[in-house]
């Protein structure tokens, strides 16, 4: 593994190696001294062209626990909003000797561009690109589900909400399929992408029909602004048809869990009581995020990099 750009790049074996590694590393997170010397002398740059304090902090904690040097580069708000900046920034990072670049970008494909451009030689980790993918989020979701539900093969995972604009949904659908789970995407037809028939998933417009067979339900964030673009008529109608409320939650099987990649719109896609219920693993998702990102960074940088073996 040279980069982590898309969940589709991971074989079942890769994915399981990452999850198993994360499981070992989760032990470290629980120790009084949380630091490992593993990536001493490696430089990891967090290149964030889009605000995401949560994801950045998670990557930063992961890198620091492995003793890497971390440089945070936030390009948001500065003059570098236009395209050429990606190239210039990458060249700067290359000059700084970045071994890995963790990139969050509002443009789909920006991590691919960085990885395949020869602007930087380091490993590239996609920390969320536009409406494309967010593979480490999918890994941490899979990790959370596996720790609650066991082997994911044959498990029914229902992903509900704005699939069209969701990088989390894309990465989850791909990764969960690789891990053998049965994925169902539930959304109003306006929020399912054209061509979703070719994805390795089922789709449904009816949340009530899916609830009872779900082992895990993942609620996606729905931005209220979508309403203004006529993706749905009103927040009230959306939450009535596609929100997870107590009545729906109570129809889930006893072992089923409720997930949300955050940040939540309480009262929109998820009811506050549901978010705070025992079934909700939302806080766990955050803890697991650090371990999974440690695993990814370790597996990308912990051994000889391609350059060093070449």
């Amino acid at each position: 593994m040279k980069h982590l750009l898309s969940a589709a790049d991971l074989t079942r074996e890769d994915a399981i190696t990452i999850l198993d590694t994360a499981e070992e590393l989760l032990g470290v997170a629980k120790r009084p001294i949380k630091k490992l010397p593993t990536l001493r002398g490696r430089t990891i740059v967090n290149l964030f062209f889009e605000d995401s304090t949560r994801t950045r902090i998670s990557f930063e904690a992961a890198a620091k626990r492995l003793s890497a040097d971390v440089i945070n580069f936030s390009a948001k708000g500065s003059s570098v909003s236009k395209g050429e900046s990606l190239k210039d920034t990458a060249l700067t990072l290359q000059a700084m000797g970045a071994d890995a670049v963790v990139i969050r970008h509002h443009a789909s494909g920006a991590p691919h561009r960085l990885a395949h451009s020869r602007w930087t030689r380091g490993a590239v980790v996609n920390a969320g690109d536009g409406t494309h993918e967010h593979p480490t989020q999918a890994l941490l979701d899979a990790f959370t589900m596996r720790s609650r539900l066991g082997d994911l093969a044959g498990k029914n995972v229902t992903i509900v909400g704005d699939v069209l604009h969701s990088r989390v949904a894309r990465s989850n659908a791909l990764l969960l399929d690789t891990l053998g789970a049965e994925v169902t995407l539930v959304a109003p037809p306006t929020l399912l992408p054209v061509g979703v028939e070719s994805w390795p998933v089922r789709t449904s417009y009816d949340l009530d029909a899916e609830v009872e067979k779900s082992d895990a339900v993942m609620m996606l964030r729905v931005q209220r602004e979508r309403m203004n673009a006529s993706f749905f008529p009103s927040a009230r109608e959306y939450s009535r048809r596609y929100g997870l409320d107590l009545a729906r939650m109570n129809r889930l099987p006893d072992h089923a869990i409720v997930m949300h990649p955050g940040p939540m719109n309480r009262g929109m896609e998820i009811n506050a009581d549901v978010a705070d219920s025992d079934r909700s693993v939302i806080v766990e998702q955050v803890t697991n995020g650090v371990a999974v990102r440690m695993a990814v960074l370790y597996l990308l940088l912990g051994g000889a990099t391609e350059e060093e073996t070449a």
């Binding site: 789909s108 494909g109 690109d129 536009g130 409406t131 494309h132 993918e133 069209l164 990088r167 894309r170 992408p193 054209v194 061509g195 979703v196 028939e197 070719s198 994805w199």
Partner: peptide, 17 residues
Amino acid sequence: QMNEGPLSGELGLTGWP
């Protein structure tokens, strides 16, 4: 950004139908 079809959905690029 690109032709609207299965690929635009997969790549997360807004479709031009």
